[in-house]
Every structure is written in structure tokens, then in C-alpha cells.
Design a protein around this nucleic acid. Structure first.
Lengths: 256, 256
DNA sequence: CAAATCGTTTCATAATACGAAACGTTGTTT
DNA sequence: AAACAACGTTTCGTATTATGAAACGATTTG
């Protein structure tokens, strides 16, 4: 292992790599399988897990499997970044979800991806279900495209430089020119659509949330299965979402 | 430093102790002040912070101060413990808060304390505001007393053995006998009141949430300033809260 | 009842975390 | 403008600690 720029604490990095495994796979692990997955010796893994357990970062469930602990829940809720945004959006999102009966998301751009800050789920059985705090590609989601569309030109060109537009479905926009055109169209219309560009059968509509300086601070999206999402409803959906967006905008006027 | 039962990874413990500081104090720190607060050498603290920063567990704000990072937000939202409870309670809490216009909390007992799993805040300016994921004393809060009251006899006597009933205000119940009597009264009435027992000027009312086996799984409380909380409203408050509790109970019938 | 698998412990060794001191910047005081 | 103070950051030799193969005891499985 070569010397890094700064000499970081390797044990700490290992500990968090273990936690990271929980984000990408299942939520309960034995020592040996987690060690294998993370690529560590089982003794090391055991000791790290024991340490994390002593801190309530990890805890054991009834089957003696290791799961993420409540201390992480506590720490996660103390993160101040975007805290007011998360908070202000909550009630309006709930009302939109209730009116439209589809899942509503609220997010911002963070490191070229959409970061979901909050959501309100559809009451129906068949629904989109995403994890708050998780990330998604921006270029093939309605919420991501609307966030990009109202970003500055520099941000958009930076995005196109850094992100590879890979096809997720046959509908995914994979050309820079086509995406720029789409973003222009979104700016004109004031909303974005995702017509099964991320996933087949999944349709979304999204609108921006601005601060008092007309700068975009976040976006709201509504997602549902193509079987329920009818074109004739889009205008009524938009009216409902805009009402929610306006409530949020009133509360985040000074956000930058 | 003497040898512990298990040899835990000290670096990992130190890293999380740093994060813990954020829970009890402010949310942005410089290296030296955080080192002083945590009791570590500034070089060690710097290296741990750098490590955590490389993992997005910590990030720097615009003033180059270290704050909790979005990776923690992501991890915290992935904690599976009580996840369904948190989720199911959300919309009903929002409706209660809207109807009563006071802050609503939803919590469980965890290690002899109340763990707040969710909340919905009062729309009013003067309001109670607690952090989701944080803890509070059980014996002097309405939500804690109702959770205790409907616990098993063993759990209650264990609680009394382990917890010291310290006075928070002049109204705090500090005697075991008096608390047992209060819990009995709560079981009879079906709800608990906190008449400024935790904090002067703060009044709460709480009711239990049961699963289909009539076992308590959580509780809902409504909290407000004594200036607004009138006795004549209690019955109407209870009706609203019970409606919300029933909605949650329908969804958590199988929770144990 | 033997074999396999689990979480856990041991121990000598190699790796790395450590802190005092120095460094380069920045903002403030004289 | 010079001196000072406080900050985050880097250096380097040393001492602490993390490491993993192997062994262990307990369950589970064939």
C-alpha cells in the first residue's frame, strides 16, 4: 500500500467501509460474510464490528446478525446540511402525495447526482419507493433534469464534462446535444418529464423550487407506474405540485 | 490504559467520539476546539477529521469549519431498527399537528429512555422542537410515562431499579411509589399528562399505540406551552390523537 | 455422531497511530 | 507596517496498536 497524500486513519476507513456495505446490500450480516464482502480478514472485521457495537453504531438483531444501530439514526438526523430544506418540504410533500396518490420526492443536486432529501409515498400498493439520503442519476430522471435545467450554464457544462450519459432504457437521453435541447425545453415549459428513461414502466414529472432570487434550490417530483400515469392528468398534477412548491418557496425564500 | 474485555479498535472509538461531540454541542467545529472538547491531541483530531472528510462523514462548510456530512445522513436513513414504525407514523402525525396546531411526537422506549422516532411540528412560532433520533427521560414526560405504564410489570420494576428519578421541576415525580401510582392511573385513564414535570411552562399529553395483541409498540404525544394548553381542550385533543393512533395501529398490527 | 460453520479468542509480529515541534497563512493588534 | 496570535496542516522518530493464522467452543447440518 503506497503512501497517500495525507496519512488517513486506516482503521476508521475500514470501519466505515463496513457500514457502506449495508447501503448497497442487505441490512443484516454475519461476521464472516461481511468480511468476505468487504474484503477484510474475519478477525479484523469481528473486532471492528465489536467496536462499532460498543458504540451503538452497529447492533445485533434477534438472530445475532449485525445490523445498523440507532446511534447512526441519531447522528444522521443531526446532519445540518440541507436540514431546513428537508424540514420545510415535509408537510407540502405529504399533501401532494395524498392528492395525487403517487410517490413524491424532494431533492437537490449533490456531486452531479440527485440527493433525495425527503419524500412522501403513495398510499397505493404498487408504488415507487426510494430511500431518503440516497442518490440517483440526474440525466435520466425528471427531478434531476429539472435541477440541471435551472442550473447555471457553467454547472451544466461541468456536468456534461464529468458525467457519462449511459443508457438505462431505450428512452434514456445519451447525447449531450439532445440533453441540452431537453433542458432548454424544460426551462420553457417549467417542468420536466421522465418517460421511462431510468426504468421501464416508470414515469415522473418534476418542477423546480426557487428562492426569492429566482435561483433553484431544490425540485419536487411525482413518480408512478406508466399504467396509471395518463397524459390527460399532467396539467392537474402540475397544479397540485405547484401549490406544494409555492408553500415550500415561501419558507425557503432566503435559502441559497 | 488497562486491557479491556475485548480489544476494541481505539481509532474507531475516537472517530465516533468526535462525531458524538456534534450531538451535544454546536454543529460546526474547528480542529483545535474540537480536539480540546474531545480531549485529544490536535494532530490526532486533524487526522481523524481528514479521514472522516475523505469519507463524506464530515465535510467543511463555507467557513472551513467541520460539520457532519451527508454520508451520515445516508447511513442514518438506512437504519432498519424501527424503520416501519417511523414510516407508518408519519402521515398521521402530520394530520394531528395540523388539527391541534401543537408539536406531535412519536416514540418508543429504548434503554430506559424515550427515543423519538418521528415528529410533526406545530405551525406556530412558539413551539416545542425536538430532534428525531434523540432521547429524553421517560419518568417525567407524558410519552415516557405512557410507554412505561403499558409495559410489563418486570419492565417497570427494572426501570425503577436502574433509573434515578431526579427532579427536573417542582412537579417532577421523584418517588417510586408515586410514579407507580401515576402509572396505574394512566392505565385506567388510557392517557398520560405531563404537567410541567420536565420543564416549566411545558405541558404534554400522550396515548399508547398497540399492536393486535394489545401490546404497546409506541406512543404519541402532543406538547405545547402551558399558556395555550387548556384543560377544557383535553378531550377534543384526545379524540384527534386517538384517530391518528388508530391509523398507525392499523398499519402496525403485526409489530412486536 | 462426525463434519461443517458460526462467532470469538490468542499471540507474536508487522504496521501504523501518535504527539511535539515546526510550517505557512490569515486576521488582528500595536 | 511590523509584530503577534491563532488557525489548519505537515514532518518524523518512536511507541502503541492493529493484524491474521490458528485454535477454540458452541451450534447446526448431513
Amino acid at each position: 500500500m503506497s503512501r497517500k497524500n495525507k496519512d488517513l486513519n486506516l482503521s476508521v476507513i475500514k470501519a466505515f467501509k463496513l457500514l457502506d456495505v449495508y447501503l448497497n446490500d442487505k441490512q443484516e450480516w454475519g461476521v464472516r460474510e461481511l468480511a468476505k464482502k468487504a474484503g477484510y480478514n474475519k478477525t479484523t472485521t469481528y473486532r471492528l464490528l465489536s467496536t462499532l457495537e460498543s458504540l451503538d453504531i452497529i447492533q445485533k438483531n434477534d438472530d445475532d446478525k449485525y445490523i445498523l444501530g440507532l446511534k447512526l439514526f441519531e447522528l444522521g438526523n443531526s446532519v445540518s446540511v440541507h436540514k431546513s430544506l428537508r424540514h420545510y418540504a415535509r408537510e407540502p410533500l405529504e399533501l401532494i402525495a395524498k392528492d395525487i396518490t403517487e410517490t413524491v420526492h424532494f431533492g437537490v443536486l449533490s456531486n452531479n447526482r440527485v440527493l433525495y432529501l425527503n419524500k412522501a409515498e403513495s398510499p397505493l400498493g404498487l408504488k415507487v419507493s426510494t430511500q431518503i439520503g440516497s442518490y440517483q442519476k440526474a440525466y435520466c430522471t425528471a427531478i434531476g433534469k429539472v435541477l440541471l435545467a435551472f442550473s447555471s450554464e457553467e454547472q451544466i457544462s461541468e456536468y456534461l464534462k464529468q458525467v457519462k450519459l449511459e443508457a438505462c432504457t431505450l428512452n434514456t437521453i445519451t447525447g449531450s446535444g439532445a440533453l441540452l435541447e431537453e433542458l432548454g425545453s424544460i426551462r420553457e415549459k417549467g417542468y420536466a418529464l421522465d418517460m421511462e428513461e431510468l426504468e421501464l414502466g416508470l414515469i415522473c414529472i418534476a418542477i423546480p423550487v426557487f428562492n426569492k432570487n429566482k435561483k433553484i434550490v431544490a425540485a419536487i417530483s411525482v413518480s408512478g407506474p406508466s399504467s396509471r400515469f395518463k397524459f390527460e392528468n399532467i396539467q392537474s398534477y402540475l397544479a397540485i405540485i405547484r401549490k406544494g412548491a409555492q408553500k415550500i418557496e415561501k419558507r425557503v425564500r432566503d435559502y441559497s
